[in-house]
């Protein structure tokens, strides 16, 4: 990795405390994010993948302080985010933006597109109304939308077009980091490619680093330089995307890759070696969280939690059998 460290996440945790029922003992906290560490370099794209409920979105929101962390450390360009006051944090938000999965619920339906795109400038103290309008128009152009969309309302746009508005809003203040939370999952197949291409273009033009959250391993492999696989609040494997796809190590990663229906292969047997559902993060299995579904588990997996260890240069795995 040649770039400087842009984002360093150390042992990030977010526990949600379920409400205590009258006279009952306090229930165990729900460990949505349970000790996540990774580094994102400048100009890099890091993918965060996992099934629903694995904590990938919560991790992203916590590190942006959209929700407050339980513990851990996040430093962005050398500044410790969790030490900042609300106002200082707001200033820094210019540098770190987010794109959401559902573009319709991410914008105010009562505001025109032009208005939505001027908002970032207004919030961050750019007072010149005329200039803001001009900048908003430039943003439309940058994301490949026609200018006549400026006066339209969100419901008049298709999902793909509105996701472009979401992207335009995110790049408005020329951030260094964009967290893209399932940015193409809600879009049709023929539109997904358009949006991915747009994100790739912007990365080159504006020098953006991405934290790309997705459950679609095909998209992640295509889009990301490195990939982190999450399971029940923990990273179980972290590697260059090429390494990850050519020689996946963790049994969970292997299962995920095998389970993707592919265009070439016919349905072969044993595509679903992993039985059962993802356990509840309120009551995770003892030891390695994956042992309840793991096809190769041993006795020790039920007792001890494996650490994330480097097994090859840049390739980290949390599995006793691969250490």
């Amino acid at each position: 990795m040649n770039g400087e460290k842009l984002l360093v996440v150390r042992d990030l945790r977010k526990y949600f405390q379920p409400e205590k029922k009258f006279l009952a003992t306090s229930p165990a906290p729900l460990r949505a994010v349970d000790g996540v560490s990774f580094t994102l370099h400048e100009g890099e794209t890091l993918g965060l993948v996992g099934e629903s409920g694995c904590g990938k979105s919560t991790a992203a929101r916590t590190l942006l302080r959209l929700i407050e962390p339980t513990s851990g450390q996040v430093s962005f360009c050398g500044t410790d985010l969790f030490d900042l006051k609300e106002t200082e944090m707001r200033n820094l938000r210019k540098e770190m933006q987010i794109i959401f999965q559902d573009p319709y619920s991410a914008v105010n339906p009562a505001r025109r597109i032009g208005h939505i795109l001027q908002e970032p400038f207004e919030i961050h103290g750019f007072r010149d109304k005329k200039e803001n309008v001009e900048k908003a128009k430039q943003l439309l152009e940058q994301v490949g939308l026609p200018l006549d969309h400026f006066n339209r309302y969100p419901h008049e746009l298709s999902g793909g077009q509105l996701q472009r508005v979401g992207i335009a809003r995110a790049i408005a203040l020329e951030p260094k980091l964009i967290v893209a939370d399932e940015p193409v999952s809600a879009l049709d197949v023929s539109i997904q490619a358009q949006v991915i291409n747009l994100l790739l273009d912007l990365k080159e033009r504006l020098d953006i680093s991405y934290l790309f959250i997705s459950h679609d391993l095909g998209v992640v492999e295509y889009f990301c330089d490195r990939v982190a696989v999450m399971y029940l609040g923990k990273i179980v494997e972290l590697a260059d995307s090429e390494q990850m796809y050519n020689s996946p190590q963790h049994p969970y990663t292997i299962a995920l890759l095998d389970a993707i229906p592919s265009l070439e292969s016919e349905r072969t047997k044993n595509k679903a070696p992993v039985k059962g559902d993802i356990p509840s993060p309120a009551n995770p299995p003892k030891g390695c969280a994956f042992h309840s579904r793991c096809p190769i588990k041993e006795k020790q997996c039920e007792e001890k939690i494996p650490a994330l260890k480097e097994v090859a240069p840049g390739h980290h795995v949390a599995c006793f059998l691969k250490h």
Partner: peptide
């Protein structure tokens, strides 16, 4: 077009 627009596993960018 539909087939081409899907990123396939293994065809590295």
């Amino acid at each position: 077009g539909l087939i081409a627009s899907i990123p396939k596993l293994g065809d590295k960018k």
